[in-house]
């Protein structure tokens, strides 16, 4: 077996992990599986594309590739702006749809269904705006560098892994060391009690939407950079995201990240052993195994 699958799996797993952190956070605070989360990845990727295109139009110097990487300064700048825009999209979606259903005391499953409708509308809107033709941030080609041990990776892939590590550490510190992080954990334990204790539950909910969508934007943009940007980018990642969130244990950030890497590595391994056409079935198999053997996941609390 070619050891290169470890590198491919790590890169894919990093992106799945970042997305799964968003899924697991919104799930533990808002208490429903958000089927529109995949669309945050796609929208994040396309927003970064649009903003970086606009930046490149304003100042052509920004599109000149930075030393070993395939993209210019326009992309990282655009990513920062796109994170805010994707967060805004999530907040608007919550305000017009989910908050209304919540305030009416709708059942969990109605929220799931609304997210299902929203995902359909958001995805097809992207297809309408940008057509289903794949898009790229840059046309530059990259040569993979040898890392030793038979592994190769492009500078872009290594950068993505590095960014993921930084982001995960920041999120982990945010959740464990800051006031808003403690409020979030309190709300996820018991929203009513947290409200009585003086925590502004609505502020926590807004914060969670923003963080989840921001992470989705990063994951979507990196997927777009390393593979390609398509309206179905997020939809195709949705099942791996859910598998990773459930495997890691709902509500656990380190769990989601580790499970994301497990899902990514298993997918890459399956591509080598069984064939690329069965890649998408891997997350379903993992999902079934987790539900059979340990429904609360690796790091989850018992339901």
């Amino acid at each position: 077996m070619n050891p290169q699958f470890i590198m491919d799996g790590l890169v894919a797993g990093a992106m799945i992990g970042l997305g799964a952190i968003g899924v697991t956070l919104t799930y533990s605070i808002l208490r429903f599986a958000n089927f529109a989360h995949g669309e945050f990845l796609s929208w994040g990727a396309y927003l970064a594309l649009a903003v970086s295109g606009a930046l490149g139009f304003l100042a052509t110097g920004l599109t000149r590739p930075i030393a070993p990487f395939s993209f210019g300064w326009s992309l990282p700048l655009a990513l920062v702006i796109a994170i805010f825009l994707t967060g805004l999209l999530a907040l608007v979606l919550d305000a017009v749809l989910f908050a209304r259903l919540r305030s009416r005391g709708s059942a969990v499953i109605i929220l799931v269904m609304a997210s299902f409708g929203a995902s359909l509308a958001l995805r097809s809107l992207l297809e309408f705006l940008f057509t289903s033709k794949p898009a790229y941030y840059t046309k530059a080609l990259q040569i993979a560098v040898r890392l030793g041990g038979g592994l190769r990776a492009t500078p872009d892939q290594l950068l993505s892994l590095g960014v993921t590590v930084v982001v995960v550490v920041v999120i982990h510190l945010l959740l464990t060391r800051t006031e808003i992080g403690r409020s979030m954990r309190a709300v996820s334990e018991n929203p009513a009690l947290a409200g009585i204790a003086g925590i502004d539950v609505r502020r926590v909910i807004r914060f969670v939407w923003f963080i989840g969508a921001g992470l989705a934007c990063i994951a979507g943009t990196m997927t777009g950079l390393l593979v390609q940007i398509r309206p179905y980018l997020g939809h195709d990642l949705l099942l791996p995201l859910f598998s990773a969130a459930i495997l890691g244990g709902i509500g656990s950030v380190p769990g989601a990240m580790i499970a994301g890497l497990i899902v990514g590595l298993s997918e890459a391994g399956a591509v080598q052993l069984v064939g690329a056409e069965w890649r998408s079935a891997v997350s379903f198999v993992i999902l079934v195994l987790v539900l059979l053997l340990r429904p609360r996941g690796l790091f989850g609390r018992p339901a």
């Binding site: 429903f32 099942l239 999902l287």
Partner: peptide
């Protein structure tokens, strides 16, 4: 299990049957 695990699992079935 939880109500929405069924939703996630059926979503997985849809992907897998298509494959």
């Amino acid at each position: 299990l939880r109500a929405d695990y069924l939703a996630i699992a059926t979503f997985g079935v849809a992907v897998s049957v298509q494959l």
